[in-house]
Design a binder for these strands. Structure first.
Lengths: 153, 153
DNA sequence: GCTGAAACGTTTACTTG
DNA sequence: CAAGTAAACGTTTCAGC
């Protein structure tokens, strides 16, 4: 399930990740090609799913979402029913930006972006009232040192 | 530093986060307004930095980046010089997608996206050879349950 | 601050080298 | 497989309300 992507494709992806609002002509000249081949490659990568959504990056602070928590979760439940309920809860909560099931002692990690500690506690209370959780550790971010959506292509 | 954003602005942001390649007409009709006011609001939000870069979301699996690690770091060093070196190292490494300085016992958390465990180890060895680190725990993601760049506006 | 329309630029598809 | 081209479409600006 690993798409064939050549060197020119990678250059195009780098440009799109840096700024997807560039015109085809700009991208073409930066990657050393011309409009038509660049356009065809982008279309193909969209079709194969290498390129997904085009989106816009917002500033959380300017929108009053000043608190970012990483939440480490251990649970004693490992049944399918419990897991489904847990996943549904996470997917339904827009403040959960990321959720991963982990290998090892800690079962899940969440990234939660909220207005303040109070808003995090509201989320936390809602979560533990919906699903049984054994142990939760919340790590509060003091400073976002680096933040990128750009994969190393 | 908290921008004034009204209800119509929030609707526009929701649309842009969902799909920034929509035309102004599409966005305008979805949010119940028309082209010009939507365009003026988008421009203002770009100027004030509420809206940042337009980008494209790539599929890490399709690009062969199949391993995602969350790295918990404790250090005994808290001098400015050490910290600068550490930050520079992280910023220079494209596999580090996210890095936060934390409150509490754990000093830093990183999100690292690489091809495989071997590539993670290369990163880890490079990191500890460049800066003194007291304790590192790597959490390997088995499954990405949720992943969004969309903030809850 | 909105509407509508006109000017301008970009995308897309197709034809040709 | 690339370049050129032209029609379709989208964006941006501006005058009038």
């Amino acid at each position: 399930m690993n798409a064939r992507v050549d060197d020119l494709d990678r250059k195009i992806l780098t440009e799109l990740q840096a700024d997807a609002s560039q015109t085809l002509d700009e991208i073409a000249s930066k990657v050393g090609s011309s409009k038509t081949p660049v356009w065809n490659r982008i279309r193909k990568m969209r079709e194969t799913g290498v390129i997904g959504a085009t989106t816009v990056i917002l500033d959380p602070d300017k929108l009053g979402l000043e608190a970012c928590f990483f939440v480490l979760i251990r649970t004693s439940e490992h049944e399918a029913e419990w897991q489904n309920k847990f996943l549904e809860t996470l997917r339904a909560r827009p403040e959960v930006l990321e959720a991963h099931r982990l290998a090892g002692e800690i079962d899940y990690i969440l990234k939660v972006q909220v207005a303040n500690a109070r808003a995090y506690d509201d989320f936390y209370q809602a979560l533990i009232s919906e699903v049984r959780i054994f142990n939760v550790t919340a790590l509060l971010s003091m400073e976002r040192i680096k933040h990128t959506t750009a994969l190393p292509v």
